[in-house]
């Protein structure tokens, strides 16, 4: 008899609840919730972030790096010297984007592909990190006359970088990233190594919904000849544009150069100011 009463009460409560609050009937399916916008842009400062462009989106980047701040008023604290990199990136899939770019001072063309392997998620399926890979090839340009030289080999102009990018959005403002990196140079000096490994650290702290500060450091693990690069960035997002202001001890904008060929020293004031402007264009719209 007791059981019947219990069942009766249960039914009763279900019945009344359904009347009171139909919302309880709408228990939504338990889907994993993917964490998005770990970083604002495809780059933390100079190095790649785990972000990829969405499918059908083209991004055009104009990157400027001026001279060092300690070069005095004669150089207007570096503003007299500037180098640029122009770059295009395109999202082939929602998880894959490719890009090309060219750096003026280094006379280097770079091509890269980034693939997002796994996304940070919570809910029914939890995964703590977003993981991506980025691979790039760098071709140092040459004059046709150089190709006639006896020692010239096309392969000597090439270098490569491979990165594993592991990031976690800790809360809605703070994201951190670890980027183990391998850079391979086809041609090096006697004292240098062809394969060089480094470990990158990146972080982003949002100040407001549209402004964030970023920091990045690459620690060279083997074959260290030059300084480690330390950079700070300031991202301002306005609709389709992202403005990024940077301070770094490297003027370079490509992995093969800023990780292992950084000559500047923060303590000496060899700080390069720079900025990026990026604009996205939606080539293919979602349906």
């Amino acid at each position: 008899m007791n059981k019947i009463i219990v069942i009766l009460i249960m039914c009763q409560s279900l019945f009344t609840k359904a009347q009171d609050n139909l919302l309880s009937m709408l228990v939504s399916e338990d889907k994993p919730i993917y964490i998005s916008s770990t970083f604002k842009g495809k780059k933390v400062v100079n190095g790649q972030s785990v972000e990829v462009l969405s499918k059908g989106v083209l991004q055009f980047q104009i990157q400027h790096r001026f001279g060092t701040l300690n070069s005095g008023f004669y150089n207007l604290f570096g503003l007299d010297n500037s180098q640029i990199r122009l770059g295009f990136d395109y999202g082939i899939k929602d998880w894959m984007s490719v890009g090309i770019g060219r750096s003026s001072e280094l006379k280097t063309i770079d091509a890269s592909a980034k693939i997002r392997l796994k996304r940070q998620s919570k809910g029914s399926k939890e995964f703590p990190f977003t993981i991506a890979t980025n691979s790039a090839i760098f071709i140092k340009q040459y004059r046709w006359s150089e190709t006639n030289e006896e020692a010239f080999e096309m392969s000597n102009q090439l270098s490569f970088s491979h990165q594993l990018l592991i990031a976690r959005k800790i809360n809605r403002d703070l994201s951190v990233q670890l980027s183990p990196t391998l850079v391979h140079y086809n041609l090096v000096n006697y004292a240098e190594k062809n394969d060089r490994i480094s470990l990158g650290f990146g972080a982003r702290q949002k100040l407001t919904n549209r402004i964030s500060v970023n920091a990045e450091y690459f620690m060279q693990i083997n074959g260290k000849i030059n300084n480690d690069v330390l950079s700070f960035g300031f991202d301002i997002e306005t609709g389709g544009h992202v403005f990024q202001l940077h301070l770094s001890n490297s003027p370079a904008m490509i992995e093969s150069s800023f990780i292992h060929e950084t000559k500047g020293d923060w303590e000496q004031g060899d700080i390069y100011f720079g900025f990026n402007i990026s604009r996205v264009f939606t080539i293919k719209e979602n349906k």
Partner: peptide, 25 residues
């Protein structure tokens, strides 16, 4: 009685960046 419910992330925009800003900002 009439009730309805939706997930904000299920809104699809023609431009992906708009969708990101819509959710994020």
């Amino acid at each position: 009685a009439l009730v309805f419910q939706l997930n904000i992330t299920d809104f699809i925009f023609p431009k992906s960046l708009m969708q990101t800003h819509f959710n994020e900002n």
